[in-house]
Nucleic acid binder design. Structure first.
Lengths: 229, 229
DNA sequence: CGGCGGCTTGATCGGTCTCAAGTACGGTGG
DNA sequence: CCACCGTACTTGAGACCGATCAAGCCGCCG
């Protein structure tokens, strides 16, 4: 059972005060959604959207990282996903958000008007398919996450490290933008168990810790075996 | 840690041997997908599709119940969802199934050719939107399930009973098509813990057990409080 | 009536949580 | 440049919840 994130009194970013990037190709209706985005800045722990709010926008990480989560009434928090640069998030079929999202550190997020995207997808089957595939990928990720949540603590931590390594630029070293508490709430563990387990992995020479937020994978095969896929 | 489902040597149903229901309106291209289904029968524990197989069909429960699940290499099984009459399942954006599905008891399943559905959705924006919303509902369900998996045993069982009650025809009595083992694998618990917890709920007069597969909700308010929403 | 599978119940074990200190680090102000 | 502080992280001891191991019970079908 984990504590809720400490409230940092995040001032809600004003969507109207957004700096508008120049439109590169305002008339092309088909293809990607990329052309319609506006960049917004969020600071550390600032809420991007909250559960139950109208889902008027669709988001893409340009810089920084985002946590998407749900909370139980007593404050226990389950982080459903971390979004890194290039990832899209916040897409809902219903018209309200089913989860909340916050910037983990300072972040730049591209924002797309949902109504515009939906209108486009109604006309363009390729856009519609893209939306659907995005949602389906999220579904697969969620199903994999369920599998993770029935594993042992060691298996969860190893799985997490392998996943982050796969998403990083392929270097030997994984850099973690999120705190131990975030990792714990992602894995359904406590912060102490996460810390201890990382310690064990270090002792077993599976990883090394140049700093607490940077993890070098010393023995991927060992780690991989520990994930219990 | 739960055991895998005992192998019952399920003979794979032959898609070609399906009894064809008459087409009610063969030329109407738009609207629901309902018109293109073929009914198939599956017997208890028979596999409908397996993880990694090509996703050539889309399914809808007509009679009976279905479990959708993934397994870890050592046999631990996580049931991601139960599908009851009226539920659609098996829709994938990729062209292979990411999970497996089995009939829980004898079941009748309507089967739709994926290629036909996709072709239809490429022409008809309403069908495309229906596909997308179906996937999005599954995603929401999966995210709720993640939240469930961080709850205590009692909270999980109470949540499960409330969910099943909500899906049943609204009667006082919930009838469970699945075994305790299935429930355990759905909730991320062992069969013993599920059984014990149901026992506790009975002792607390929250529920009554006319039989092990039928559960009467005696005190919904108490149960609801125990779900920790 | 016998046997089998599914379910319940009991006793014990172990992994993770909880509570509580202690340590490293980064930022801030002198 | 250093002292200080707050936050994040680590580490330890003990409790507790759910898993495991092991019987027993029930209902169903032959």
């Amino acid at each position: 059972m984990s504590m809720p994130t400490p409230a940092i009194a995040p001032r809600r970013a004003d969507i109207a005060s957004v700096r508008q990037p120049r439109m590169t190709n305002a008339h092309a209706p088909a293809g990607t959604l990329e052309m319609m985005g506006a960049a917004m800045s969020f600071s550390r722990n600032e809420e991007i959207y909250g559960e139950g709010e109208p889902a008027d926008y669709l988001y893409k990480v340009a810089r920084g990282a985002v946590r998407m989560y749900k909370v139980l009434s007593d404050g226990r928090r389950q982080i459903g996903a971390f979004y890194l640069p290039g990832d899209m998030f916040g897409l809902e079929a219903g018209d309200t958000h089913a989860s909340s999202a916050e910037a983990i550190g300072d972040a730049t997020i591209l924002v797309f008007k949902r109504s515009a995207v939906l209108a486009l997808s109604a006309r363009d089957a390729d856009v519609a398919r893209e939306l659907w595939e995005m949602t389906a990928r999220e579904l697969q990720r969620a199903q994999d996450h369920m599998l993770l949540l029935i594993k042992s603590a060691q298996e969860r931590v190893a799985s997490f490290l392998m996943e982050m390594a796969g998403r990083g630029c392929g270097n030997e070293e994984v850099s973690l933008p999120m705190s131990r508490q975030d990792i714990a709430d992602f894995l359904g563990l406590t912060i102490e168990t996460v810390s201890r387990t990382i310690g064990h992995l270090e002792h077993a020479n599976a990883i090394a810790l140049p700093s607490s937020r940077r993890i070098a994978l010393r023995n991927r095969a060992m780690l991989s075996r520990m994930t219990a896929s």
